[in-house]
Amino acid sequence: MKYKPKNPTKIDGRVVAEWNEESVLQMVSRFGHLRRAEIAASVWPSSSPESAKKMCSITVRRLLARRELEERPNALGGKSLVVALRGVRRLALSGHESADGRDLSSVDGPQFYHRALGTNYLIQKLREGAQVFGEYAILKQRAPATRAGLKERFNKFPDGLVLYPASSRGYNGPRFAADWIEVESNVKADADIANMMRIALRPGVWLDAAETTVIDRVVFLFDARQRHEAAFCSYLRREVMPVLSDYGDGVLHNIVFARAQIRTPLIWEGCTEVTAAEVLLRSTGESALLKQPKEDV
């Protein structure tokens, strides 16, 4: 006698479990390493925080027991998850490229805070429906531009990329418009700020050799409790405002300050964004900053 389910429209729990496991493995593989809170937020974006946390705990426990994930101490004194060799093999069976993350130095090294801050911002954008590529994806050549191409074109690499349909940003030619993400966790000297502003002050350049993606904005991400925004604005007032006409009135709308709300040691509570034009307008009253010309690309 065949088993007849009581509710034939309900998805088999084993199917859901397998989907959850592969989703977690893919997400950890995408970023290199994640904490449980980051896995919960990214894999179950539509669930309540309590439900997402519970599903994450159950799924991670199974993956650890099967040795498809491995847990490592991170630089903040907590635990992070990386994909183990068995997890790499499982992902390969479903057509997903991955790599063994057990030797990642960014888990317990000095760059952990910097990487985790960027990861949380990218997860927020992922939840909002954008395409995202973190530092690890760029390193592993999974981003829309190669490391060699980025080095040649910009002589530096972003801490992340967020892609949107180009039409949503007012472009007619490109397929995608990208936000170039710069994570700020240390105080920068003027020379370092100037280097980062090189890209911010020339929006509309191609990100990739195939010319599918244009850089639209540069987003400076930082803990809102720190003074990075003041340093950037001071630089813009001294070096850019006096020669604003050389860049175009709308350029300051393409420089974005992402103010992350963080609880110690690094508990993400959200992020608000404001353009450099909005911040400087409050202090200068320059109506020209409100202009937002954008040439077709």
Results as ranks from 00 to 15, higher is better:
Arg198Glu: 15
Ala116Met: 10
Gln141Lys: 11
Lys156Cys: 11
Pro203Asp: 03
Phe133Ile: 05
Pro265Asp: 00
Arg238Ile: 07
Ser46Ile: 07
Arg202Thr: 12
Thr275Pro: 09
Ser80Asp: 11
Pro242Met: 02
Arg66Pro: 01
Ala231Pro: 01
Asp216Gln: 12
Ser98Ala: 15
Met241His: 10
Gly248Met: 09
Phe157Val: 02
Asp223Ala: 06
Leu281Lys: 12
Glu97Asp: 13
Glu229Ile: 08
Met196His: 15
Glu286Trp: 09
Arg86Gly: 15
Lys54Trp: 13
Phe257Pro: 00
Asp179Met: 01
Asp100Leu: 03
Gln26Trp: 04
Leu221Cys: 08
Glu135Lys: 10
Gln141Asn: 14
Lys6His: 14
Asp216Phe: 06
Val82Lys: 04
Leu207Gly: 11
Arg102His: 04
Lys156Asn: 09
Ile123Leu: 07
Lys10His: 12
Leu207Phe: 08
Met197Phe: 14
Glu128Ser: 15
Arg102Trp: 07
Asp216Cys: 06
Gly204Asn: 03
Gly109Ala: 02
Arg225Thr: 05
Pro5Ser: 11
Ala137Thr: 01
Leu76Cys: 05
Phe133Lys: 02
Met197Gln: 11
Gln292Asn: 15
Arg14Ile: 02
Leu139Ile: 03
Lys10Asp: 09
Val214Gly: 04
Ser105Gly: 07
Lys156Val: 12
Gly285Lys: 00
Leu63Arg: 08
Asp108Ile: 00
Arg72Gln: 09
Lys54Ser: 14
Ala148Leu: 08
Leu64Tyr: 01
